[in-house]
Write a protein that binds this DNA or RNA. Structure first.
Length: 273
DNA sequence: CCAGTATCCTGCAGGC
DNA sequence: TGCCTGCAGGATACTG
């Protein structure tokens, strides 16, 4: 579920709520996830350390602690992080709970187990295979300069290329569809058959749709980071995602949907060329 | 190297 | 009502 804006929103909420808190205990059970979850290991290393300001890379959350080390998290499709009082009921599929020194808990819930929570020693970050392979950070300067030529060099559909985390890190199925609609480009169009001008437009729309979504999440974050609440996910007003069969907001034609690279993609056949 | 497909897992909506 | 199927906002191993 979560794409870059949702992960960034969670990151900000964690920073606001938990930075400076000390971890006093870890609960959970080891289980197969995208990488094996090793709760014994987490229990061995985390207690006594304080939460520092978390970082984000693509859709990965890097929860730094002091003394230094990092809890690497990915929410997959169904993952959630919640801050609760210790007395709050434990949801099904709660895999890891960090007990904090103020009586609250940070819980990682992930029914589908496509997510990830692993410990990184200082220095592990640069060699971690997932992190090391990530492409451009879409909100960093340099995206405009680098992404169009990367897309131009590939023959796959632009929709698939936007989802490739090795090229640009953080775009998922929703925001890829939205950026293509904003740019007026059909999602099946091959990278190498698109002009650099249009790829530049697409690149700008990728950044703007992500930035807007982050902004919207950021403006309401305090309401969501309530002590017993989830961090909500924020979707900006969506023009195409999930709207197949409905009217295009730009040209009033009917939006359709196709499976591209195995992922359902809604788009407008009239104004996306 | 690149492009495309299968796969991991659970929950839920929709059809019968 | 219950059962079955397909699909879900992700990443990656594998095939050709």
């Amino acid at each position: 579920m979560p794409e870059l804006p949702e992960v960034e929103t969670v990151r900000r909420a964690l920073d606001l709520e938990l930075t400076g808190r000390r971890i006093v205990g870890v609960r959970g059970s080891s289980i197969a996830m995208r990488r094996p979850l090793d709760v014994e290991h987490l229990t061995a290393v985390l207690p006594g350390r304080r939460l520092a300001t978390p970082r984000r890379r693509g859709k990965y959350l890097l929860i730094d602690v002091d003394p230094p080390g990092t809890l690497l998290n990915h929410l997959g499709m169904s993952g959630r992080l919640t801050i609760t009082d210790a007395s709050a009921p434990v949801l099904p599929h709660t895999h890891v709970t960090l007990e904090l020194d103020d009586g609250r808990e940070l819980r990682f819930v992930d029914p589908r187990r496509f997510g990830l929570m692993v410990w990184l020693e200082p220095g592990d970050e640069v060699v971690d295979p997932s992190l090391a392979a990530l492409g451009i950070e879409p909100l960093d300067p340099g995206l405009d300069q680098r992404l169009p030529s990367l897309l131009k060099a590939r023959r796959a559909p632009l929709k698939s290329l936007l989802l490739d985390q090795h090229l640009v890190a953080g775009v998922g199925n929703i925001y890829a569809a939205e950026a293509l609609w904003r740019a007026g480009i059909r999602p099946t169009r091959a990278g190498h058959r698109t002009s650099i001008d249009r790829l530049t437009t697409l690149t700008r729309e990728v950044r703007s749709v992500l930035a807007e979504a982050v902004e919207q999440g950021g403006t309401t974050i305090r309401d969501y980071a309530t002590p017993d609440g989830d961090f909500g996910y924020f979707a900006i007003h969506l023009a195409v995602y999930g709207r197949q069969g409905q009217t295009c907001l730009r040209c009033q034609n009917t939006l359709r949907s196709d499976v591209i690279g195995g992922r359902t993609t809604a788009w407008c056949p009239h104004c996306q060329r």
